[in-house]
Amino acid sequence: MTTNGTSQSILLAGASGVLGRHITRALTEAGHKVTGLGRSRENGIRADLMDRDALLRAVDGHRFDTVVHAATALRKPPMRDRDMYATDALRTEGTAHLVEAARATGARRFVVESMAFGYGYGDHGDRPLTEDDPFGPRGATPALERHIAGMRTKERLAFEAEALDGIALRLGLFYGPGGTEALLPLLRRRQLPLPGDRGRVLPWVELTDAARAVVAAVERGRPGQAYNIADGTPMGFRAHVEAVARTFGLPKPLHVPLWFLKPMSYAHTVMSSRLRMSCAKAERELGWTPRYASSHEGLAALRPTSHL
Rank of each mutant, 00 (worst) to 15 (best):
G44Y: 00
E145Q: 15
R127M: 11
L202K: 09
W204T: 10
G179N: 13
L194M: 15
H32D: 05
A216R: 15
T153P: 04
G178S: 03
F174N: 00
T35Y: 01
K76S: 14
P134L: 10
V241P: 03
G176V: 04
R39T: 04
D81R: 10
V59G: 00
Y85C: 03
R212I: 01
G179T: 10
L11M: 12
L157E: 11
K281A: 14
G38A: 02
V18Q: 14
R138E: 15
T95N: 00
G236K: 11
F237R: 06
V112R: 01
T289I: 11
V68D: 00
V244C: 05
P253G: 00
R39G: 03
G298T: 08
K76D: 14
T2H: 07
E100S: 13
G61T: 00
F135G: 11
A102I: 00
L173D: 13
A210H: 08
R41V: 08
A230M: 10
G298H: 08
Y121L: 15
F260E: 02
A86D: 14
A267S: 14
H268D: 00
I10G: 06
R21Y: 04
G221A: 08
A54M: 07
I23H: 05
D81A: 13
A86T: 04
L275C: 14
L157P: 04
L19W: 02
V218N: 05
S16M: 05
I23C: 11
V205R: 02
G118F: 07
R200A: 12
G14I: 02
T180C: 00
M264K: 09
T289R: 15
M264H: 05
M264D: 03
G61I: 05
E283Q: 15
Y175L: 05
T305S: 13
R82W: 12
A86V: 03
G221F: 05
R152K: 12
F135S: 10
Y175M: 01
V67G: 01
C279V: 15
R220Y: 09
G125C: 11
G31C: 03
G5N: 09
K76E: 14
V241Y: 02
L173R: 04
T105A: 03
R75G: 12
M84K: 10
Y227N: 04
D51F: 05
N43G: 04
H32K: 03
R189S: 14
E285D: 15
P263W: 07
D133H: 12
R189E: 14
A70T: 09
R39D: 03
